[in-house]
Amino acid sequence: MAERYSSFTPGGTAWLLQRVTAVFLIFALAFHFFLLHFVNHAWEIEFAGTQARMQDLGYFITMILFLITATFHGVNGVYNALINQGLTGTPRKVVLAILVLASLALVGQGIWVAIEMRGGLIL
């Protein structure tokens, strides 16, 4: 029976996660574009407006989720594109490490900025 658990492969999980994040991103990206280009115009953005939006807890959480899923979806896409080109062995491990570090840095920085925009972590 233990063998069955080992049949769970990283390839399949990443594939599924890529699809699941895709479904979320369809809505998140469409919402984001619509809100910040058509409802609020990009050239009118001021810090106060951003802060007002970020102080809505639902919006704040959506944006954090948007950041995390988009980073995963994008970086995993890049990684797969490279594997499809025949990236193997040590270069592949190095690339994976770089991509993971870049993703963590991006998500960390993004969350920090979001908290700053919100004006602290207060609810």
């Binding site: 049949s7 492969t9 390839g11 399949g12 990443a14 594939w15 594997i83």
Partner: peptide, 13 residues
Amino acid sequence: RLRIIEQEHGVWR
């Protein structure tokens, strides 16, 4: 059989 095709270089590519 599924274990063979679900390797990293199987169907996911």
